[in-house]
Simulated assay, not measured.
Amino acid sequence: MELGILSLSDLQTSRDTGRKVGAAQRIADTIEYAVLGEELGLDVFALGEHHSLDFAVSSPAVVLAAIAARTQRIRLTSAVTVLSVLDPVRVYQDFATLDLVSAGRAEIIAGRSAFTEPFALFGEDMADYDALYAEKIDLLLRLRADDHVTWTGKFRPPLRDAPIAPRAVQTEMPVWAGVGGSPGSAVRAGLLGLPMILGYIGGPLSHAKQAVDLYRETGERAGHPERLRVGISTHFFAGATAKAARDVYPYYHEYLRPKTPGGRGFLVNRAAFEAGTARGQAIMVGSAEEIAEKILDARDMLGIDRFFGQFDWGGLPRSLVEESLHRYGTEIAPAVRTAT
């Protein structure tokens, strides 16, 4: 099983200084976290894409290229590429270039976005939410397969024997489907034979099994049993003790709370947070031993091939983030690898 870390590059107000962290500092820290992840022996680094002032990264491929120049082994992926609002030709070119820069370590996790801002920004209609993604994932997979493409769709000008350059180092650069839990998304991933990453930030792990089972059943009926892989991503923090880990609750509350009246977010009280960190629940916040047990539980229950810990949320100080990553690399990862 592959073990990875995932950052969404959220910009929060520092609890120490009372000032919002700037994008330049946030990106610099993110690059250092990825370098540390490789040094600690983790397998994958994933970076989110957002198009609002609450996040530092709108172009994961650019930041991942900077990370590629500082690393040699760790795989590099978006999480997710908001494919519904982007031109698949440009997406393929950007990540093929990253693949060249990184000597074959690039991946794409393609999703539809849980936010509305990108649709307005790029002039796409939310009424076409599903149709946009369906058409663009079809084109992206064609671009990955062929160096000359002829294609016609509804939302993009046609291609007529168009040369697609540069070509990735990898013969088939991995494209994963990013799924938020909707049955339709799991079915599509299975029909296409794409590996699936399930973003699951809260609730019992057993609830995620419904989407995973549907994905596997669909993929097997579609003739893709050998191509099916499952990953899961959830909030992560490894503390020196169980209590020390759960004491990061103020950062978790800050991360999820709505920042504007009526804005996107959730108010999570401490009791709900601590309940969500219990065994059988999705939030991976606890001691190294607790988290290792929960990752193994997820493997047994869901048959996951890849785990992502979303590790640097809510304005957590860099010192705490790095301590958590060290526990992941030196305690959690060895325990999980030994057990598997």
Rank of each mutant, 00 (worst) to 15 (best):
A211G: 11
P157E: 00
F155W: 12
G153K: 07
S185K: 12
V175T: 12
Q170C: 05
V212N: 00
Y215M: 04
G181F: 03
T218L: 01
P166Q: 02
P166M: 02
I197N: 05
D213P: 02
V187A: 03
L205P: 02
R221C: 00
D213A: 05
A211L: 09
G203M: 04
L214Y: 08
T171Y: 04
I201Y: 15
Q210K: 14
T171R: 14
P204S: 14
A222G: 07
A208P: 03
P195K: 11
T171V: 15
I197E: 00
A189V: 00
G190V: 04
G193M: 06
L191T: 07
Q170P: 07
V169Y: 06
G153S: 09
Q170D: 06
D213C: 05
Y200L: 06
Q170F: 02
E220A: 09
G199A: 15
P204E: 14
A177H: 15
P163Q: 02
K154D: 11
R167Y: 12
P163H: 02
A162I: 03
P163D: 02
H207Y: 09
L159Q: 08
V212I: 09
G223N: 07
V175D: 10
I197G: 00
Q210P: 00
R167W: 12
T218H: 01
H207S: 08
H207W: 06
Q210Y: 13
W176H: 09
G193W: 01
F155T: 09
P163I: 04
A208H: 07
A222L: 07
I201M: 12
G202K: 15
D161K: 13
P174T: 11
R216T: 06
G202Q: 14
A222N: 10
G193D: 05
I197L: 13
L198W: 10
E217D: 15
A165R: 14
V179E: 06
M173A: 07
P157C: 00
Y215S: 01
W176S: 04
S182E: 12
I164H: 08
T171P: 09
V187P: 00
P195M: 13
T218E: 05
R160G: 01
P174D: 08
E217C: 05
S185N: 12
P183H: 03
V175Q: 12
F155D: 13
I164F: 13
S182W: 10
G180S: 09
Q170G: 06
P183W: 01
I201G: 13
Y215F: 11
V212R: 00
G181Y: 03
G153F: 10
E172H: 11
H207F: 03
G184A: 10
G203S: 09
G153C: 06
Y200M: 07
A168Q: 04
V175P: 10
S206C: 09
S206E: 15
R160K: 13
F155L: 11
M173W: 07
S182K: 12
P157Y: 01
A208F: 04
P158V: 12
V187Y: 00
E217R: 15
Q170L: 07
F155I: 08
G203I: 05
V187E: 04
A177R: 06
T171K: 15
